[in-house]
Design a binder for these strands. Structure first.
Lengths: 333, 333
DNA sequence: TTGTAAGCGTTATCAT
DNA sequence: ATGATAACGCTTACAA
C-alpha cells in the first residue's frame, strides 16, 4: 500500500502537508489541497492507522469485553456498541471473557497492550480482579451491566432492584401469592440485586419468598431446563416464576412443556432482557426489557467525553420496562 | 505505561535485549533473561502492540466481516472465530456490514487501513464489489459462507445444494408431495444454490416445485412471519416447507400458530443452521446443521498457512447434516 | 500556508 | 550473546 511519503512526492508537497489535508486540523491552501486529494484518489492511499495510532496515541479503536458472546443480551449489546462507535469513526475490538475470571485477566492485559481509546466492560463476576487492572491506566473505562464497586469509575447499570420489583408487582397484581425466582449465578452482584428487589416488593405485599423457591441458574437455556425440573416438584403450590433472563425463561418454558405443564395455565412466567427469544416462544414471553441501545450509546458517549476532559466518574442508572405478552395470566381461583 | 526503554534501563541492558527476551526468537543468556523478566514483572510492562505491529507488519489482529451480528448463525460464527484466533495469539476486530453493500465498501477500506493480519469475510450479497477491493492487497483473505466467484481466493463454503437436497429428501421420505420453500434474498447466491438443490432433488422424485410455493424472505424472523401469511393460503395443498434459516422457520412456525395451524400436524417444517432457535420452538425444529465451529477453525487456519507461504487459493466445501426433531412428520393419508 | 525534523515504541540489521 | 542504530508511517512542534 502507498504511504504518505509517496503521496507527498507525487503531489510535490511535503509529507506534513499531506497529513494536514487528511486530518483537516490546520488550514491548507485550496489548490494544494485539490492536488493532494487527487493523488490520494489516484494512488488509493489509505492512512496506516497503526502508525497514526502510535504517534497520536489514538488508534480509533474501542475495546468491548463481554462474558458471553452467545447470550442474546450481549449479542445485541455488541451490535449496538458497534453502531455507536462506527458513527464516531472508531472500530470495535471484541473480547470474549468466556465467563471465566482468570481468562478475563489475561484478556485485559492483552487489551491494554493494544492501547485502545476506551474500554467498555461487562465483568464476569464479583470475583473479577478486573477493576484493579484497568483502573490507573489512563484509558477511559465504562463498566456496564455487571458492576461491583461504585464511585471510582464510570458506570452504567440497570436499576436491577427495580426490575425485580416490576416482575413481582406484575405477578402479584395478577393475584399470585406463591412465587419462585430463577436467578443467575450468585457470584454476580446484579443477580442478588434483582432477587432483592423481587423479594422486597413481595414482602411489601405480605408475600414471603421461600428458599426452596429460589433456584440458581447460570443464564443459559439449559440451566433453565434444569430449573424447570426443580420447580415442577413444588408446582401446584407455586403459580408464578420470574427467570432473570429470557434464555432461562425459555428453558423453564420448554422444560415445563416436557413435564406436561402449560404456560400460563399451570404457571405464569416472566423473563428478562427482551431480545430475540421472547417472540419465538409459545406463548410469547412477558418480560422485563432492558434499554440496551441507550446503554450502548451512553457508554460510548461517556468514553468520548472522558477523552476530552477528565470528567468525574459518574454512575448512570437506566430504567427497565415491563413488556406484557401472553406468558402471564391471573392466578387460579 | 512502561516502555521497553525504561525496562532496559532498569535491567541495565540494551533495549534490543529486552526485545529479544520477549520475542524469544534469538537466544539470550539465562542470567540476563532472568533479570529482564523480573523487571518486566515489577514494572508490569506490556509491549505496545501498535508499535510492534507497525514495525513488524503484524499487529496480531484478524478482521471479521459479517452481514448481521444479530443473526444467530453469525453470532456463533463470531464466537468460534474469536476462540480460534485467541488460541493463536490474535484478537478480533469485528465489522458489521449491516447487509448493506455500500456500507460494506466503506468498512473494507477502513479495515485495510488497519493493516490486519488476515480477513475473514462473509459478503453481503452477490452485488458486493468487495472482492475487487480486498484482492490484490497483500493480506490473506478467506471468503466464508457467502461467496460469489471461485478460484481467485481462499474460500470456505457449505455444500448448499446438498443442504437443499437433504431437506427435500427428508420431506419426500416422509411422503410429502407438495412442498414449499422460504428462501433468503435472491441476490445472495447461496440461496439460489439451496433452492436449486431442493428443487432438483424433488424433480428426481417426480415432484415439481411450483413458483407460488417459493417465497422469498430475507433471513429475518419477521420475514418468516410474512411468509407464513402467504403460505397459509395454499395450505391444505402444501404439506411441508423448508425455510432456509432457522430464524425464518421460527417465523413461519409462530405465524402459522397465529393462523391456528399446528406444526407438524398441518405442516411439516424444516429449518437451517441449528443454532439457538430450534430448541426454543415447540415442537423443536428439525433443521439442517452447519458445521460452524469447523468453518471458523479452518478459516483461521487457512489465514495462518497463507501468512507463511503463498499457498494457492483453495476452496474447501463443508458438509451439512440433517438434525431430525419434532417439526416434521409423515404426510397426511 | 508550508516544510523540516523529532519522536511515538517497537523490530531488525548490523557490528562487536 | 549483546548493543547501536536505522527503520516502520505517521503527527506535531517549530521554523520559515
Amino acid at each position: 500500500m502507498a504511504s504518505m511519503k509517496e503521496v507527498a512526492k507525487r503531489a510535490g508537497v511535503s509529507i506534513s502537508t499531506v497529513s494536514r489535508v487528511i486530518s483537516r486540523k490546520t488550514p491548507v491552501d485550496a489548490r494544494t489541497e485539490q492536488k493532494v486529494r487527487t493523488v490520494i484518489k489516484d494512488m488509493k492511499y489509505q492512512p496506516n492507522l497503526l502508525a497514526s495510532g502510535l504517534r497520536s496515541k489514538s488508534g480509533r479503536v474501542i475495546g468491548l469485553l463481554v462474558p458471553r458472546i452467545l447470550d442474546p443480551f450481549f449479542c445485541l449489546l455488541i451490535d449496538c456498541v458497534d453502531r455507536a462507535v462506527i458513527n464516531r469513526g472508531y472500530n470495535l475490538l471484541l473480547f470474549n471473557t468466556c465467563s471465566d475470571p482468570d481468562f478475563e485477566e489475561q484478556v485485559i492485559e492483552n487489551l491494554l497492550s493494544r492501547h485502545v481509546d476506551g474500554i467498555i466492560f461487562s465483568m464476569v463476576s464479583d470475583e473479577s480482579r478486573a477493576m484493579e487492572l484497568v483502573r490507573g491506566v489512563g484509558v477511559p473505562v465504562v463498566m456496564l451491566d455487571r458492576v461491583r464497586e461504585t464511585g471510582k469509575v464510570l458506570s452504567l447499570v440497570l436499576d436491577n432492584a427495580g426490575a425485580g420489583r416490576m416482575a413481582a408487582e406484575h405477578l402479584a397484581d395478577l393475584g399470585h401469592r406463591r412465587l419462585a425466582c430463577v436467578t443467575g449465578s450468585s457470584t454476580i452482584h446484579l443477580c442478588l440485586e434483582r432477587l432483592g428487589g423481587f423479594r422486597s416488593a413481595l414482602e411489601k405485599r405480605g408475600i414471603h419468598l421461600n428458599d426452596e423457591c429460589v433456584v440458581e441458574g447460570d443464564f443459559t437455556f439449559s440451566s433453565g431446563i434444569a430449573a424447570a425440573k426443580r420447580l415442577v416438584q413444588i408446582l401446584p403450590k407455586v403459580t408464578a416464576v420470574w427467570a432473570q433472563n429470557d434464555l432461562m425463561a425459555a428453558g423453564v418454558l420448554i422444560g415445563m412443556a416436557g413435564e406436561g405443564r402449560r404456560i400460563p395455565d399451570d404457571l405464569s412466567l416472566v423473563g428478562m432482557d427482551d431480545v430475540g427469544v421472547p417472540l419465538f416462544l409459545q406463548p410469547p414471553l412477558t418480560t422485563i426489557a432492558q434499554p440496551i441501545r441507550e446503554m450502548a450509546e451512553q457508554a460510548v458517549e461517556m468514553i468520548m467525553e472522558r477523552k476530552k476532559s477528565d470528567s468525574p466518574p459518574k454512575r448512570a442508572i437506566l430504567e427497565p420496562t415491563l413488556v406484557i405478552r401472553k406468558s402471564t395470566a391471573a392466578a387460579p381461583e
